[in-house]
Amino acid sequence: MTLKIVVSVKYVPDAAGDRTFADDFTVDRDEADGLLSELDEYAVEQALRIAEAVEDAEVTVVTVGPEDARAALGKALSMGADNAIHVEDDDLHGTDAIGTSLVLAKAIEKTGFDLVVCGMASTDGAMGVLPAMLAERLDVPQVTLLSEVSVHDGAVIGRRDGDAASERLQAALPAIVSVTDQSGEARYPSFKGIMAAKKKPVETLDLDDLGLEGDELGLAGSYTVVEAAAERPARTAGVIVKDEGEGGKQLAEFLAGQKFI
């Protein structure tokens, strides 16, 4: 039986560029180049490793995002995923986490899955909530924030390094997992992989295909409103001194002046 793995990936503005907001307080996608969220490369990697460890598996990558988000799918396909689904619709502009999770859940349900693999958080919204929301919507176990993951005999096993303890987790498939950047370095696409990716199927779906209405989503259907976004004022320039032997002492004086010592 084929193990059906779906990897959920996000297309994000490059953190190294100037990330800003448009007039409607959505992410300005014109100002910074976009790419596959670096933290989702770890999800693709773990999905591929799980697929390689079983006899028969299929890895599908899915993204919800604008036309350019195809680039994120292309990267995942060149790493080795088999096929991709791109959910794209003008009515999705400005969708919040509640809406995004609804669209993703519908798309994942439509394609079918034994295992969904997500990243730990996106590098732009960085909420770290989508995997839990998907588990809630799809009513399957959530096995999240794993630094180690494997699939054996219809169950997923993993290690979650939490704030107070490191936990071993276990759940029966189908399940949703998310993996951290401690789970293992992601592979680079090979030249062969990049060439092969060009021929791999990418299915495009819109809200209609998922049985959703435009006004349930986007800015109109949002459960949250952003009322203001302001660039943080530059920190007032500090005092930078070169250590000529007194640097530690001067620093102590600064800290004493601020009542820290």
């Binding site: 920190r235 007032t236 500090g238 005092v239 930078i240 001194v241 070169k242 250590d243 032997g245 640097g247 530690g248 002492k249 001067q250 620093l251 102590a252 600064f254 800290l255 010592i261």
Partner: peptide
Amino acid sequence: LADHGVIGDLFEIVPALTAEA
């Protein structure tokens, strides 16, 4: 970002600061 920055070797500066503190 620094309100106070020291350019130099941390292995010199940090022990000196610790002693002062």
